[in-house]
């Protein structure tokens, strides 16, 4: 019984920490984007530098009226934000923030991550269909198409560090980088990191792959009919998922909690935020590409590329005689 209580408390603390970090990441994104465009960004609410802005946004969204379209498929429409949010939170269950600091260090950690994060697609789909709006439906179709296309190269790119470390356990992957972070691995590391980042951009529906949202064509995509708290939940889910994948990138390529001087969790957070900022940076620097181009890049370029990369990694590990069996 004690274990259950302890697990529940740990999960509660972790969830709230994640929500806090993610809420402030929206502020970081706005400030960062503003700097990229020679603007100031949020400034008025809270001094210095509008640090109360995320809180104000959250309060505003909570107070807003919740509008449900009369033609919506009500149960699906109402459940969609929750189904969208759940996997985004669940992926944090297996992430090791420091040695021994994490909810569950599963020995299939990476597989668990991939499995749970792929469920996000169901929520997206429910939102698009349940709204009974043609823009939402088009957006959901595009989103599903894109996410399943990019899941394959995403998994293949994530398997490169697994091969190098010889384990699916996320903490073991971090420990294997004690000598050299995987991103610094000659050739293989950098190529895999690039592939991973591109696949992340696409599976998170970020510019230049944001045909799901595509304001100029689809208004706001699958969330066009959502308002108030449900809209807030969807936004929260998107950012949480992005932060989760950033954490995964930090673990797989940037050596997780490893680093000199500063304590482990701080290094981990720094690296995860760095991954997050990388995605944001690309988002504010490039233009959107077409649907067919996006799918073409996935199947014709990224998939063969990651497959060859994976084979090269396997060859390298076999020749080196390392990559112990975990």
């Amino acid at each position: 019984m004690n274990d259950i209580v302890r697990a529940a408390v740990a999960a509660f603390v972790l969830l709230n920490a994640v929500i806090l970090v993610v809420t402030y990441l929206t502020w970081v994104e706005r400030k960062f984007a503003a700097r990229l465009q020679s603007r100031i960004g949020p400034y008025r609410v809270g001094r210095p530098h509008g640090w109360l802005q995320p809180i104000a946004d959250a309060l505003k969204l909570m107070i807003k009226e919740d509008v449900v379209p009369s033609v919506a498929d009500r149960p699906i429409y109402n459940l969609a934000p929750i189904v969208f949010l759940l996997p985004a939170f669940l992926i944090f269950a297996t992430i090791p923030f420091a040695p021994g600091l994490g909810l569950a260090d599963l020995n299939i950690g990476l597989l668990y991550f991939l499995a749970v994060s792929s469920l996000e697609i169901v929520g997206l789909f429910m939102g698009g269909w349940g709204s009974n709006n043609k823009y939402a439906l088009l957006s959901a179709m595009r989103g599903v198409n894109q996410i399943i296309s990019y899941e394959v190269p995403f998994i293949l790119a994530a398997l490169v560090p697994v091969l190098l470390a010889g384990s699916l356990r996320l903490s073991a992957i971090v420990e294997a980088q004690a000598g050299l972070w995987f991103i610094a691995y000659p050739v293989i590391g950098q190529l895999a990191f690039v592939a991973f980042t591109v696949a992340t951009l696409a599976s998170e529906n970020r510019i230049p792959f944001d045909i799901v949202e595509a304001e100029s064509e689809l208004v706001a995509g699958f969330r066009v009919e959502y308002s108030g708290m449900k809209f807030a939940l969807i936004q929260l889910a998107e950012y949480t998922h992005l932060f989760g994948v950033s954490c995964l990138g930090a673990i797989l390529f940037l050596g997780g909690w490893l680093g000199p001087v500063l304590p482990g969790p701080v290094w981990f957070l720094l690296k995860a935020v760095l991954m997050f900022l990388l995605v944001i940076w690309v988002r504010w620097s490039f233009v959107r590409i077409r649907v067919d181009q996006i799918l073409g890049i996935s199947w014709k370029v990224l998939l063969p590329f990651t497959l060859i990369l994976l084979m090269a990694t396997g060859l390298w590990v076999a020749l080196r005689g390392g990559g112990g069996v975990a």
Binding site: L106, N107, I108, L111, Y112, L114, A115, V116, S118, L119, I121, V122, F125, W129, V144, I148, E151
Partner: peptide, 20 residues
């Protein structure tokens, strides 16, 4: 464990999406 993860990735993730 492996089977469970594969079940979610392949069935609940990929195949169900195809159905939908």
């Amino acid at each position: 464990e492996f089977l469970a993860a594969a079940q979610v990735i392949i069935y609940a993730g990929a195949i169900m999406v195809l159905f939908l």
